[in-house]
Amino acid sequence: MTEPKIRAIVWGCGHMGQIIIKYLKDKGVELVGAIDRNVSRVGKDAGEISALKRSLGTFIHHPDEAKQVFHKANANVCIISTRSLMIDIYDSLETSARHGVNAITLAEEAFYPWNTSPDLTQKLDKLAKEHNCTLTGSGFQDVFLGNLISILAAGTHRIDRIQAIIQYNIDGYGSSVAAQYGVGLSVEAFKQQISGYTEPFPSWYMNEWLCAHLGLAIRTQKQEFWPITNIKTIHSTSLKTDISVGSVTGMKAVVTTETEKGVIIENQVLGKIYTPDEIDTYECTLVGEPTTTLTIHRPATAQMTCASLVNRLQHLIDAPPGFVTTDKMQPPNYWM
């Protein structure tokens, strides 16, 4: 049986959206709409500003014109790559749902928002069911901090602790991410503005997803932040400025989850502006019987993030209506 043609709207045409547009075209997906609030991109051909660097005949519209885009596009998928929190992407998810269009987002909180934004998630769940469509979150965490760890767990007799450590260059993700990591602040300002931050860090949702997937009830959960500085000046392309010696170039964020069964999940993220000799890293260790460590050398984090989402599209379409987190879907797989 031939799968229905995927007709996609991309909402957010920044760095990640530009990669996604290329991956969609490579997979034979028809791009029928593009939305972005950056005035420098509005009105331009989505293909020309994407990693494809060629015209597709689909022009970028401002979010103020989103309803018109959905009305004309006859899309069955909307891909949202704008912000991180449910409150910030609610309007785009709501617009998709009201038009009966399945939506998938890179927003970290959408990966598992049931505990942190229950009211918004339940409203979207109800709306999606009313309009017979599915909403979900995916990305790097879906594969590498979720399902891959679950597969490793399936080959382990006893798990005492799960520890994931990733490092990535935040300079390719825009000025809002750099600001979230405190780039450019003094160490003292970081301690005042970031260290006591109570909004859950993205790893918070990832740990909650993993607990739900493995059937582990959460007893306690905490997060801690430490500034990262450098001994020489570093240029930030996202902020378009130099970060002076001693100023913050990023941070180490650690989310630790203690479960009722005694299993500890620790997720460490080191996000910073790179020096020329630094690379992305990924390491996951399951401590127990046996202890297993999986290391990926120089992971292409941005590309893996986008590929993980695109490879989820058919699962999104096949899922039941509602807000369905991917712990309730089949494991991700490669899509030809």
Score class of each variant (00 low, 15 high):
158 R>S: 13
133 C>H: 01
258 E>C: 14
31 L>Q: 08
130 E>S: 11
236 S>N: 12
75 A>F: 02
140 F>R: 00
138 S>I: 02
214 L>Y: 01
223 Q>F: 06
216 L>K: 08
275 T>H: 09
39 V>C: 05
308 S>G: 10
212 A>G: 11
165 I>K: 15
300 A>Y: 14
252 K>L: 09
227 P>I: 03
131 H>L: 03
34 A>V: 04
242 D>N: 11
132 N>W: 04
291 T>L: 08
329 M>L: 10
271 G>F: 04
84 S>R: 05
180 Q>E: 15
133 C>T: 00
183 V>M: 01
35 I>F: 06
328 K>V: 06
195 S>M: 05
96 S>V: 02
177 V>I: 13
252 K>C: 05
18 Q>Y: 08
223 Q>V: 04
67 K>F: 02
119 D>H: 13
129 K>Q: 10
133 C>Y: 01
5 K>A: 09
117 S>A: 13
113 P>E: 09
275 T>Q: 12
175 S>N: 12
280 D>L: 06
265 I>L: 06
115 N>C: 12
234 I>N: 09
242 D>K: 08
7 R>Q: 10
47 G>Q: 01
109 E>L: 11
122 Q>I: 10
214 L>F: 01
265 I>H: 00
103 A>L: 00
153 A>K: 07
87 I>D: 14
49 I>L: 09
135 L>D: 03
122 Q>D: 14
19 I>A: 01
61 H>G: 00
166 I>Y: 10
99 H>Q: 09
188 E>H: 12
328 K>F: 10
1 M>I: 05
123 K>N: 14
26 D>M: 10
285 T>A: 05
28 G>M: 05
233 T>E: 15
188 E>Y: 11
153 A>M: 03
91 D>M: 15
264 I>L: 13
23 Y>T: 13
93 L>S: 04
216 L>H: 12
114 W>S: 04
1 M>A: 03
16 M>T: 12
315 H>L: 14
65 E>N: 07
139 G>I: 00
188 E>K: 11
176 S>W: 09
23 Y>V: 13
238 S>P: 05
297 H>N: 14
159 I>H: 05
278 E>N: 09
105 T>N: 11
47 G>F: 05
123 K>M: 10
181 Y>S: 06
45 D>K: 02
289 E>F: 14
168 Y>S: 04
300 A>H: 15
332 P>T: 03
2 T>L: 09
30 E>A: 12
21 I>C: 11
300 A>T: 14
250 G>F: 01
25 K>N: 15
207 N>E: 00
85 L>K: 09
54 R>S: 11
321 P>Y: 06
237 T>R: 12
327 D>M: 12
224 E>G: 12
51 A>K: 10
293 T>V: 03
113 P>M: 10
27 K>P: 12
59 F>T: 01
202 P>E: 02
136 T>P: 00
82 T>I: 03
13 C>V: 13
282 Y>A: 00
111 F>I: 14
129 K>C: 08
257 T>L: 05
91 D>Q: 15
325 T>P: 11
66 A>H: 01
58 T>V: 05
